Simulated assay, not measured.
Amino acid sequence: MPLPRFHRLPATEQERILAVATRQFSVRGLADLSVHEVADEAGLSRSAMYNYFDGRGDLVDAVRAAALRRVAAALGAWVAQPDPAAFWAAFRAGTQQLSALLAEAPELRPVLATATGGGLDEWVDAFFGNAVTLGLVSAPHRLTRVATGAILAATDAAELAEPGSVSTADVEALLRAVWCAFPQVDDPAD
């Protein structure tokens, strides 16, 4: 993550530097991202960049974190819905908000495609918890929650690799199938 000096910069300057790095990441790819070229395009000395970031990996981590913050802001917090119809409508609205962000800022696609973990666990937890509360999940155990996160991550990866390749209806159908595929069984540990 950025060094303390970076955090002391005005927010607009931090955003400007990260925007340049994001653009470079998008154009050059992860393998060819250069701290020196980011510094040059941002109008900074190379030594200044090393006052803000502890090397290329640190800059990449900062760019990924900024991209994930933009996704989280676009999605907003998951708001518990009162019934299944409202739940799925809110899910569809969230996917539309994410699609709108990526249409507005396509340079985020290659950055997000390399981000691991997603950084949206709270959103997925709230989404899944609401599904459990509404009775949409037949077996609300840890494996089903992990499977939900994996389905959403796989959906994101497919969509980032090939925009428009994943329909919200298909994701909804897959989630419904997984959530209802587990029969109620007694836990042998009980």
Rank of each mutant, 00 (worst) to 15 (best):
residue 33 L to M: 01
residue 7 H to I: 11
residue 184 Q to M: 11
residue 159 E to S: 11
residue 13 E to C: 02
residue 108 L to T: 10
residue 33 L to H: 00
residue 70 R to T: 03
residue 185 V to H: 10
residue 161 A to P: 01
residue 15 E to P: 00
residue 130 N to M: 04
residue 11 A to D: 10
residue 182 F to S: 10
residue 98 L to H: 08
residue 189 A to T: 09
residue 128 F to L: 00
residue 48 A to T: 11
residue 63 V to D: 02
residue 112 L to W: 04
residue 156 D to A: 05
residue 5 R to T: 11
residue 17 I to H: 08
residue 95 T to D: 07
residue 132 V to Q: 07
residue 100 A to H: 11
residue 5 R to H: 11
residue 172 E to F: 00
residue 74 A to E: 08
residue 72 A to M: 07
residue 149 G to Y: 01
residue 155 T to W: 05
residue 87 F to C: 14
residue 123 W to Y: 14
residue 161 A to V: 00
residue 26 S to F: 05
residue 51 N to H: 03
residue 131 A to W: 11
residue 176 R to K: 10
residue 20 V to N: 12
residue 189 A to G: 02
residue 147 A to K: 04
residue 177 A to P: 01
residue 56 R to G: 08
residue 7 H to A: 15
residue 127 F to C: 04
residue 60 V to W: 05
residue 170 D to Q: 01
residue 93 A to L: 09
residue 173 A to F: 05
residue 24 Q to C: 12
residue 154 A to V: 04
residue 32 D to N: 12
residue 160 L to I: 03
residue 69 R to A: 13
residue 109 R to I: 04
residue 189 A to W: 06
residue 187 D to T: 07
residue 118 G to D: 14
residue 118 G to L: 13
residue 132 V to S: 10
residue 38 V to N: 05
residue 37 E to K: 14
residue 75 L to Y: 06
residue 182 F to Q: 13
residue 170 D to T: 09
residue 38 V to S: 15
residue 162 E to D: 07
residue 139 A to I: 06
residue 64 R to V: 15
residue 145 R to P: 01
residue 134 L to T: 07
residue 141 H to A: 10
residue 170 D to Y: 07
residue 39 A to C: 00
residue 168 T to Q: 05
residue 99 S to C: 01
residue 138 S to E: 02
residue 152 L to H: 09
residue 7 H to G: 12
residue 33 L to V: 02
residue 158 A to P: 07
residue 115 A to G: 06
residue 146 V to K: 10
residue 178 V to C: 14
residue 172 E to Y: 02
residue 23 R to K: 14
residue 110 P to K: 01
residue 160 L to H: 06
residue 186 D to W: 13
residue 54 D to V: 03
residue 149 G to E: 04
residue 86 A to D: 07
residue 88 W to T: 06
residue 128 F to A: 02
residue 131 A to C: 09
residue 79 V to T: 03
residue 146 V to P: 02
residue 97 Q to G: 05
residue 45 S to I: 04
residue 102 L to A: 09
residue 136 L to I: 15
residue 147 A to Q: 03
residue 29 G to A: 05
residue 92 R to G: 09
residue 165 S to A: 15
residue 36 H to L: 14
residue 12 T to Y: 08
residue 65 A to D: 01
residue 185 V to A: 14
residue 93 A to C: 04
residue 1 M to A: 12
residue 41 E to P: 00
residue 161 A to F: 00
residue 27 V to E: 15
residue 19 A to P: 02
